[in-house]
Amino acid sequence: MSHLMNTYARQNVAFVRGEGVWLWDEDGRKYLDALAGIAVNTLGYGHPKLTRALSARLASGVIHTSNLWRIPDQEAAAERVAEITGLDEVFFCNSGLEANECAIKIARKYGHERGIAEPAIVVMEKAFHGRSLATLSATGSRKVQAGFEPLVSGFVRVPLNDLEAVRHVAEHNKNVAAVFIEPIQGEGGINVARLEYLRGLYELCQRKHWLF
């Protein structure tokens, strides 16, 4: 009997080796991995560059020093991300949930700096943003939220790809500080945000001085 808390409906399969897109279980059976760690393990398994980098870090004896000190590898990674995205600063997280929590906090902080006492964030129906209380509240699924009420307030929900719905919110809700969107909804059923919708949403955010 496992002492792990039963939070997932785990399959009775344990993987012991991986290479590229392939995995092998304890009995030597080979699997094509189409899940990629629920879309977070996009580098595959046993990538030589990643293996070398991790091995070098372990061999150095310095695995963790906390953010109280400079971390040259982290600074180099941030510089590369900034070059690719054109952004000025980077904040590294351990998970998508943490990244989304940070985004919510940034949006609320931004709203307060603009004089909004109770900043609101526009979110989409059928979205999934995580399982912490704030990200659970931003998520558009009652199945996921059930049993964890009361939820965190401050989210205004609209249908995906409905720009008029967002314009209606903009006209009637002066507390909005940001729009929170997945370009492709996974949990909600592989719903894709149309390019013209994203462009219109971005232009609206620019006019209203909302974060996007």
Rank of each mutant, 00 (worst) to 15 (best):
M1L: 15
M5K: 09
A9I: 06
R10Q: 11
R10L: 14
N12K: 14
N12Y: 07
V13C: 04
G18W: 04
E19F: 03
G20L: 03
W24H: 03
R29S: 11
R29C: 04
D33E: 02
A34K: 13
A34W: 02
A34I: 03
L35Q: 07
A36M: 09
A36W: 02
I38R: 10
I38F: 09
A39E: 14
L43R: 12
G44A: 09
Y45P: 03
K49L: 07
S55Y: 00
S55K: 01
S55V: 02
L58H: 03
A59C: 09
S60W: 12
G61I: 08
I63P: 01
H64V: 14
T65C: 02
N67V: 07
W69F: 05
R70S: 03
I71A: 02
Q74R: 07
A76R: 05
A78E: 11
A82F: 14
I84S: 05
T85I: 10
D88L: 10
D88I: 10
F91H: 13
F92W: 10
F92I: 13
N94D: 08
N94L: 05
E98C: 15
A99S: 13
E101I: 07
A103N: 01
K105I: 12
I106Q: 11
R108K: 08
Y110S: 06
G111D: 07
H112Y: 03
A117M: 06
A117H: 11
E125K: 02
K126G: 01
F128R: 14
S132R: 04
L133S: 15
A134W: 05
T135G: 05
L136I: 06
A138C: 01
A138L: 00
R142H: 06
Q145Y: 05
G147A: 07
P150L: 04
L151V: 02
S153P: 00
S153W: 00
F155G: 03
V156E: 05
R157T: 08
V158S: 06
P159Y: 04
P159N: 07
L160Y: 09
A165M: 08
A165W: 12
H168E: 11
A170P: 10
A170T: 10
N175T: 14
N175Q: 04
A178E: 01
I184D: 07
E187H: 12
G188V: 13
V192C: 12
A193H: 08
A193V: 12
L195M: 09
Y197L: 06
L198I: 12
R199I: 08
R199E: 09
G200P: 11
E203V: 13
L204A: 12
L204V: 15
K208T: 05
H209N: 05
W210V: 02
F212G: 00
